[in-house]
Amino acid sequence: MSARMASRPIGWPRRVVHVGLILVALIFLVLFLLLPLATVFVEAFREGIAPYVAAIRQPEALSAIRLTLIVAVIAVPLNVVFGIAAAWAMTRFEFRGKALLGALIDLPFSVSPVISGLVYVLLFGAQGWFGPWLEAHDIKIIFAVPGLVLATIFITLPFVARELIPLMQSQGSEEEEAARVLGASGWQMFFRVTLPNIRWALLYGVLLCNARAMGEFGAVSVVSGHIRGLTTTIPLEVEMRYNEYDYVGAFAVASLLALLALVTLAVKTLLEWRYGDEIAAHAPGGH
């Protein structure tokens, strides 16, 4: 591509246009994307390192970190199993209603996070479908950890499936059929053929799924009840501190999430460079 560009003589007016377009694009990226990211760290360290460390070591912050990890550790593996099952069914078999199933898998991306939380309140809240029954059996879902997990599962449900479906579609099933013909059992075929073939795309999906699970705010905020130390994840702790005008505290905790975002971006870019072909063309991830 570049060879062809070089082979064509470029006049200086066009070169000026090129440089101008590049500059406009880069200025936009810096002002609009890089600056907000920089703000987070500048504000977090505004009063120095000691207040930053103190803000993160407060018990509320530590319990928020623990809760965020717990939620992700439950939600992500569940969506991985679902993603593999859905991709297997959709790419290896023909059945009626396949397009509808695909649309259903994508649905959580086009639903407002607030509505994603709301639906669980309507299902399990005090006035919800199962509310009276849950109350009678003394089970708490809304304003408790199970609600946070459910809302997070809903929000991150499409990530793994969406990475795997286009890849497994393009890979086809010849290798798996060969394994079966040669006498492999179902699980042998899965662990020795399918899984190695999809491992990088799977990792890619897990990465995006995890980033979203740990950073989700809207859906989680609706079902959390904001009980400090009990049902506040890191993003909710950020919000509470910000609303209490504890800006250093809010940005300090936010910087942890910003770091997670940077690590996610770095690993994602690395995977794309190194294993681009094995991840396949994919649609951009949503919400």
Binding site: L29, L33, L34, P36, L37, T39, V40, E43, P113, L208, A211, M214, G215, E216, F217, G218, I234, P235, L236, V238, E239, Y242, Y247, A250, F251, A254, L257, A258, L260, A261, L262, T264, L265, A266, K268, T269, P284, G285
Partner: peptide
């Protein structure tokens, strides 16, 4: 790589950063 930042940055963090 920077283009994906809005996907990766949690919305609450983006919210307070933009406000600031």
């Amino acid at each position: 790589a920077l283009v994906d930042l809005p996907f990766a940055l949690p919305t609450a963090v983006a919210g307070i950063a933009l406000t600031n």
